[in-house]
Design a protein around this nucleic acid. Sequence first.
DNA 1: GTGAGCGATTAAACCGGTTTAAACACTCAC
DNA 2: GTGAGTGTTTAAACCGGTTTAATCGCTCAC
Lengths: 343, 343
Amino acid sequence: MSKERPTIADVATRAGVSKGAVSFALNGRPGLARTTVDRILAAADELGWRPSNRARSLSVSKAFALGLVITRDPGVLSSDPFFPAFIGGVESVLAPRGQALVLQVVAPGEGEEAGYRRLAQDGRVDGVFLSDLRHNDPRIDLLTSLGLPAVTLNRPEVPSPFPAVCLDDRPGTIAVVQHLLELGHRRIAHVAGPQDFVHATARTEAFVSALAEAGLQPAAIETSDFTAVGGIESTKRLLALPDRPTAIVYANDRMAIAGMGAAQQAGLRIPDDLSVAGFDDSELAEFVHPGLTTVRADPHAFGEAAARTLNQLIDGDGSAVPDVELQPARLIIRRSTAHLEDS
Amino acid sequence: MSKERPTIADVATRAGVSKGAVSFALNGRPGLARTTVDRILAAADELGWRPSNRARSLSVSKAFALGLVITRDPGVLSSDPFFPAFIGGVESVLAPRGQALVLQVVAPGEGEEAGYRRLAQDGRVDGVFLSDLRHNDPRIDLLTSLGLPAVTLNRPEVPSPFPAVCLDDRPGTIAVVQHLLELGHRRIAHVAGPQDFVHATARTEAFVSALAEAGLQPAAIETSDFTAVGGIESTKRLLALPDRPTAIVYANDRMAIAGMGAAQQAGLRIPDDLSVAGFDDSELAEFVHPGLTTVRADPHAFGEAAARTLNQLIDGDGSAVPDVELQPARLIIRRSTAHLEDS
DNA sequence: GTGAGCGATTAAACCGGTTTAAACACTCAC
DNA sequence: GTGAGTGTTTAAACCGGTTTAATCGCTCAC
């Protein structure tokens, strides 16, 4: 019993055919007699043979892997509820197909471009996910010039050569604002994410337009950075305003939870003195005190759809792959938002 | 200007030598005249040639990649502060060496073994990180039989064929207990992680022995699951005890933050009525209200050390690779722990 | 009986590197 | 002038698959 794994030649010998025949049988190509195919598959089975990924990679010039470059500060990435679930969704598509996921975490600015370049030039992956899409995202041109297929998570405003998989954040944000309006709030502020991100501006615009719909202006808009520290600083500034807002809509849960902490620290009761809403429905949102009203998307489904779409693009014949529109995020009402107490 | 990337043959032609010579020059093998090496390297440079990973992989039977299988429920993985930073540390070692990181997220129980098996049989990786080490971890035998090199994060109690990279959680836990003792607490409870995890029992044992040192018994020990829901349930049970504990030490921040929420919900003030401590120093720990006293490790350094050690093992000549002991976790005191108010 | 036509099969080239063994050029000793 | 020895270089095999072009064995038509 040899320890070496069998090669295609071993299978060929055992089945009494040539290497080529085994390859044909394995890939289900026509031109082989049914009986021969069966004999070959049986022989492969008995030997426990599985084709070598490396050899296949070399001869067909494919990596059988997809890439994800996460451009974030590791500190910021911590406790981000999106990626783990997204990756889970991606894996659920890749695993049955025998594909792998290659992950890169790079700090913003430094090394992002190099990261994609390495992935492409080393032939590590057959395509990549473009997450955290930015306005005029330079990565689109970069990937085009590298010839690396990609799928964008959400849609860039300029026409892009890549299919987009979209999860619309606006309905959720609009629902938050309407919820607060129904509770009687009129001075509503927003703590936004960095405005170079497409999803951040989408939330901000939805916030503004939902208010406009009701004939109102934002009490204030703070542009922050999705981090806890950022959330706190913005919250402090908002609370120091002469006409303090009665409700704050945060662009993510992390800023919301941190902001809630800051408000409580400042002696405000939530939701009595201040209503707070987040975005993401991260695990802790339900369990902080008070439970955070927020917006829930489905990052797992996002990952599945993105992986499927990217594979379509890679396997396809060059014809356009249609964009995918996912179920939009929806409002989850908890205890951090309440009826406005008349002052 | 052709679009095809140059191959080693192109370089050889341009430098007027054979393929073999180019290979020798690139890998810095002796036996080539210095002038020839220079000429070859110059030619490679002019053509912008980089050796094909796929071809190299096939001929040297290496993947130039490491694998990480995360066995967790995607929901539980969310907001885990360890992995993003750990992965960041790993990448910082892999990137300069041109290695990639292959990630797999599998749900507990189902598919874990298959995950490692795939990684090994497909030859995707040259070694893996064994995280979330369990007692009598079946993965150790599995990997041994698969012939896949590995590094364990923390040390299994039975002798293992793999080097271990360890970050001792005990000093941090002991420091928490001592801190609470100094504050006058005597009825201290513990919410532990699942006791099949090595790091979970390490924290529990440290908790018990630190109390024993002071001649005390734990007020209670709840075995939970590291999740927010679990933390809440355990907290409720602890608060319902006839002799309610005055302080609770949680095995991670997530349970601590959720537990704090539950206690507040129940009308308790923290830290006046109940002191609370966590473990991890996740991003939110500093910013929830009140700020969470916790224990900070350095997952980034953990990742670096693990990657370096795994590479040593892979590149090595079969001689044993020494274990690595990292700087232990240390106490971060915030507002959630306070002097015991005499009742 | 011969050649065309067709399905089944195979030999060999190929992907792009690494590696081994042999060949080569050159100096030096005898 | 020959042989041994040394330092360079190369041809060719190899890794394990895929793919192309050629071959083989048949049947069938004329």
